[in-house]
Amino acid sequence: MNDLRAVPPILEVKGLSKRYVMNAGFWQQLTRRPPDLLHAVDDVSLRIAPGEIFGLVGESGSGKSTLGRCLLRLVEPTAGQVLFRGVDILQLPRAQMQGMRRKLQIIFQDPYSSLNPRMTVRQMLGEVLAVHRLCPPHRVEARVRELLHLVGLPADAVDRFPRHFSGGQRQRIGIARALAMEPEFIVADEPVSAVDVSIQAQVLNLLIDLKAQLGLTMLFIAHDLSVVQHISTRVGVMYMGKLVEMAPRRLLFSQPRHPYTQGLLLAAPQPDPFHHSTRVALEGEPPSPLHPPAGCRFHTRCPLASDRCRQAPPPLQEIGEGHWVACHHHDLAVWPPPAATPWAA
């Protein structure tokens, strides 16, 4: 990890928070009750080095997508800094942000709603090239074909509309659109969650190839641990708006130290019929984000929770090289867990 730290990060997030004001309606004003606050992302800091794929994993409502969108200012954060090559993009005026957007791109989850149904592939890709003046008009056609080739679509795709493509092919168009800008940083927000497994593998392999070919730096958001493990060089785990663990891939999956990360790993059903457990990996459900529990937010579900956890929120601290954990009892979290009882045959 030392080498990683020596390189200046391409993107650095410092104390990023996004709060939503809920129920600030007429009734609340009339009764002078303070509106509810939802902390979607709460004081998250991380740095991403050039050439890294940083995997961000968490369940629905953990704030992973909000964090991804804050990095591109698609959602305006409430507090914190997002430094892109040392420049805080949150302070940039609109006009300068426009130029910055070329360097920061996003691939969306849903390849059906993120493409304009009335535009052909040529129009879609041609538009981004023209708007950002990325190539002279006479070169547009050639560049569009080059992009299609890059993402593995046939050349005759240029004149077709999104409805003519399958889910996996649409996701390739979404990727081509992001790549058209020659971005320096890409947020991939659950890019393979909406497609079938046979197509998911195609898209994952494409992203891995493109990373090697173009040296892409990426924040890869997913709820599926095995997908994140597959593509990432470093992984962060989020729970209720907080980053609870962060480590290089191998370390995170071989020696997870946060009880939540461990629970996630145990809960994922593995395609291995010899590997069974009847024990539920994590009991309970996440509490309401409007009234998060005091202390550690995970304490209501944590098998190791103590009084300290109910009072003081644990800070994210470095416990090994590049391995960060926010848990008071990380030294008690045994991994691998004691042998699970085999399922009666």
């Binding site: 095995s226 493990q229 597959h230 995170l252 999956f253 071989s254 593995q270």
Partner: peptide, 14 residues
């Protein structure tokens, strides 16, 4: 083509 969790964090190509 199903990615599997590996205990050592090593991954095989899909």
């Amino acid at each position: 083509c199903v990615p599997q969790l590996a205990a050592d964090g090593e991954v095989l190509p899909l």
